[in-house]
Nucleic acid binder design. Structure first.
Length: 289
DNA sequence: CTGTGTTCCTGTTCGC
DNA sequence: TGCGAACAGGAACACA
């Protein structure tokens, strides 16, 4: 599931539990996810208070009171679940059988419990010293946040200038813009009426008017903002931290809608599906140029 | 610098 | 109904 809007939705769900709370203990149900957990993972978290829970690209960053940071990535299938605090003496709460693929459990001193579940285990967790984050390989090359004020037609022009790669690939590359994934790239390109197959650099030749890039910038911000407001998208069984479903998937214009009529007013096209870099791209060949 | 293919895993869906 | 193949939101990597 998790592209920027889903990760942001998770962050908003977890923040009231994490921020200002002290970690009583962490349970690991296995030794690794995508990567092994860092050495002394549990010991380094125990007793720490979480200062803030922020998001960078598709990463969650829990900044701790000792200046360490817990980095969490949801991969393809990761999700968090918040369980209500148990009543005093509630044995069942702590002893009940856990669902399949519950890999990490955070117990807070407040009694709140947050469980990380990830069937495919493409997600991972790291512990970094606060100072190390920006220099870490996973963060050092990340591009700009698409909802940052710095994101603009001009910024897109600088990124895309001279690039021979298809526009979709360029937008999916986290080194250019950080946080877009397959769904929202398809959706943003449709809104901007730009073909995912178009060579990225062709939009940004020097001296070229920025009109198309203005549309792209606006579309990216709009689709992400709307998706966050809708609580993200729930494909398959993905849920928010409180168990409710996001509903932005009902607003997809092209994603997973092969052969559906193009939703652009007045357009007679049908949504097509092609493969780029091994992944499905959905777009309207009639109105996306 | 390119794009493509592969890999890490499991679950769901689709075609026969 | 069963069974195998294809495919799925990410991202690093090797390779040509």
């Amino acid at each position: 599931m998790p592209e920027l809007p889903e990760v942001e939705t998770v962050r908003r769900g977890l923040a009231p539990i994490f921020e200002g709370s002290s970690i009583f203990g962490v349970e690991l149900r296995r030794a690794d996810l995508r990567f092994p957990f860092p050495p002394n993972f549990q010991a380094r978290l125990k007793g720490r208070r979480v200062a803030t829970l922020r998001r960078r690209a598709k990463y969650l960053v829990a900044e701790l009171d000792n200046d360490d940071a817990l980095i969490m990535h949801l991969g393809m299938s990761g999700s968090f679940r918040i369980d209500a605090a148990p009543l005093p003496g509630d044995f069942h709460f702590s002893r009940s059988k856990h669902p399949a693929h519950d890999h990490v459990v955070f117990n807070f001193e407040s009694g709140a419990r947050v469980t990380y579940n990830d069937p495919r285990r493409f997600g991972f967790m790291l512990l970094l010293a606060g100072k190390e984050i920006d220099a870490h390989p996973l963060f050092a090359k990340l591009g700009m946040e698409p909802l940052d004020p710095a994101m603009s037609a001009g910024a897109l022009a600088r990124i895309l200038q001279g690039r021979a790669t298809p526009l979709k690939s360029a937008l999916l590359d986290q080194k250019n813009i950080a946080g877009l994934g397959n769904i929202y790239v398809c959706e943003a390109l449709h809104r901007a009426r730009l073909s995912p197959l178009r060579i990225a650099g062709s939009l940004a030749a020097s001296g070229k008017p920025l009109k198309a890039l203005e549309r792209l910038s606006t579309s990216i911000k709009a689709v992400l903002t709307e998706a966050i407001e809708a609580g993200g998208s729930s494909l398959r069984d993905h849920r928010q931290t409180d168990g409710s479903l996001g509903y932005f998937q009902h607003n997809f214009r092209v994603y997973d809608r092969e052969n559906a009529p193009c939703p652009t007013p007045g357009c007679k096209g049908l949504v097509a599906r092609v493969t780029q870099a091994g992944r499905s791209t959905f777009y309207c060949p009639a109105c996306q140029k």
